[in-house]
């Protein structure tokens, strides 16, 4: 089977949800850090002066929230933990320190599952606090004042996750990025990273190969 290409590594909805989240997240981070650091006001200026940057931040904040809900609904069923995950945790999947150990995983490894919940939790906090900050007069001063540091902190956590996730999904694991761009990955990649999923797809005749 080696050498074959699997073409349906991810569905169209998964790709749309993922990249809508990435794009809105990047734009909100650029404009947001432009607001946090006044020395980085170039990030405000490239989006049409501070006024424009604020509008852009609000609009893409909305896109972010909608795509966050979308990816939650798409992937929550694939992100439950099982017994195989415990074995994975013992060596952390060989991600940080490389090992040759193999795991019978379904679609995501436990690290990815943790990142899923990490994204949903901090994404939810950043969205809720952002909504409060958008129209502060509808809320008490205490609630708004608490939203400011929470918004900054969750955005920071999101930025850290973004760096780690982007690295592990691209340079650290060659061949992985295409699963979410074109959806095309080698059969060997499928057998290695998601063996249980591959077997199930083969059994159901849903694995598209060329």
């Amino acid at each position: 089977m080696a050498g074959k290409i699997v073409t349906n590594g991810s569905t169209a909805l998964e790709k749309i949800g993922h990249w809508a989240l990435v794009i809105s997240c990047v734009i909100c981070m650029i404009t947001g850090f432009g607001f946090m650091f006044r020395s980085l006001d170039i990030f405000q200026k490239i989006f049409g002066l501070p006024h424009g940057a604020k509008t852009v931040h609000h609009f893409f904040g909305l896109v972010f929230f909608i795509s966050l809900i979308l990816v939650f609904l798409i992937w929550v069923k694939d992100c439950g933990f099982d017994s195989e995950d415990i074995k994975w945790f013992k060596v952390f999947g060989g991600y940080i320190i490389r090992t040759d150990q193999h795991f019978d995983l379904y679609k995501f490894n436990p690290g990815q599952k943790i990142f899923f919940y990490y994204t949903i939790i901090f994404g939810a906090i950043v969205s809720i606090t952002g909504y409060i900050m958008w129209n502060p007069f509808a809320w008490s001063r205490g609630a708004v004042q608490l939203s400011y540091p929470l918004h900054a902190l969750s955005a920071f956590m999101f930025a850290l996750g973004f760096i780690g996730h982007g690295y592990l999904g691209s340079w650290a694991n060659p061949g992985s990025l295409s699963v979410i761009t074109s959806g095309r990955v080698t059969r060997a990649w499928c057998d290695h990273h998601r063996p249980r999923w591959t077997r199930k797809m083969v059994k159901e005749g849903k694995l598209k190969e060329e």
């Binding site: 080696a2 991600y95 320190i97 490389r98 760096i163 080698t186 060997a188 290695h192």
Partner: peptide, 22 residues
């Protein structure tokens, strides 16, 4: 830290055929 990790450990390459072992 990410750059350092890449420098120390390099990419995690899945070789052809390796994934086939079950």
């Amino acid at each position: 830290a990410v750059l350092l990790h890449f420098w120390l450990h390099g990419p995690h390459v899945v070789s052809e055929g390796k994934g086939g072992e079950k």
